[in-house]
């Protein structure tokens, strides 16, 4: 009996080890809910929740481009930059590598409203060019990654700068917490769509959040560190380029 128990314990450990080692390279896009994964009701629900934010962002961008037409080009290029950033591989604190989401850096550089629009477009491109994520689940993914992420990042950044005056700490917290917020919202979206048989939505949320935590917390820390390094580089060498962005940020 004891032997059997040992064996089953070993099997469970091996199962988890295999699961997480396979999962690690995919962590990048683990926060994308794939096509067809959400039941139709929830897919529509998240679309409806996401659209007002998107339209609000779009309206603020329209106002900006009316004053200065070339801002439109800058926004388009910023979007392409955000897409390529999310396709990069960065080293992770766990030793493997993964993709950054770029929401933290984007929100600090371009402002949260602009990042909502650009982030949604990045997700659309990921769905259409790379088949990561999907069209029916775009609403849910955009809500967690392009609405909650940037707004958390920007408010954390502003609050930290105002209360401590430390730029680097603010940038680190903004990027790391944006990732964490995205991951919590995605877990919530999955928990709502797939409540556990015993314990309902709360138990299910604990389950999803617990499993994702293993890969997402190291990822959030790595992205925070990367964003600080990028920030340092930009502050030292690229002041002039950063000033160009003023035309976008004024509107946000």
């Amino acid at each position: 009996m004891k032997r059997k128990r040992m064996l089953s314990f070993a099997a469970v450990v091996a199962g988890f080890a295999l699961y997480f080692s396979l999962n690690e390279p995919n962590t990048a896009y683990a926060m994308h809910i794939m096509e067809g994964f959400l039941p139709v009701g929830w897919a529509v629900f998240w679309w409806v929740l996401f659209l007002p934010f998107f339209l609000m962002g779009l309206r603020s961008l329209k106002r900006l481009t009316k004053e200065q037409p070339e801002t439109k080009l800058l926004l388009g290029l910023a979007g392409a930059f955000a897409f390529v950033l999310s396709a990069l591989k960065i080293p992770s604190v766990t030793g493997s590598s993964s993709h950054p989401t770029g929401t933290g850096l984007g929100a600090v550089l371009f402002g949260p409203l602009a990042m909502t629009v650009l982030g949604s477009f990045v997700l659309l491109f990921q769905a259409v060019l790379l088949a990561h994520g999907g069209l029916t689940t775009l609403g849910a993914n955009a809500f967690s990654m392009a609405v909650v992420g940037p707004f958390v990042a920007y408010s954390v950044y502003r609050l930290t700068v105002r209360s401590t005056g430390k730029q680097r700490l603010a940038v680190f917290l903004a990027a790391a917490l944006a990732d964490m917020a995205t991951y919590v919202v995605t877990s919530l979206q999955l928990a709502l769509a797939f409540p556990a048989a015993s314990g309902g939505v709360l138990a299910s949320f604990a389950k999803f959040a617990g499993i994702f935590a293993v890969t997402q917390i190291p990822l959030a820390i790595s992205e925070g560190l990367l964003t600080v390094l990028v920030w340092n580089w930009l502050m030292v060498y690229n002041r002039q380029e950063l000033n160009t962005l003023q035309s976008i940020k004024r509107g946000a």
Binding site: F81, V84, L85, L88, I90, P91, L105, L109, L226, V228, L229, V230, N232, W233, L234, Y237, N238, E241
Partner: peptide, 11 residues
């Protein structure tokens, strides 16, 4: 290196 890369890309 990755940080430098992103900053260069931004420039």
């Amino acid at each position: 290196d990755a940080g430098g890369l992103v900053a260069r890309l931004f420039a």
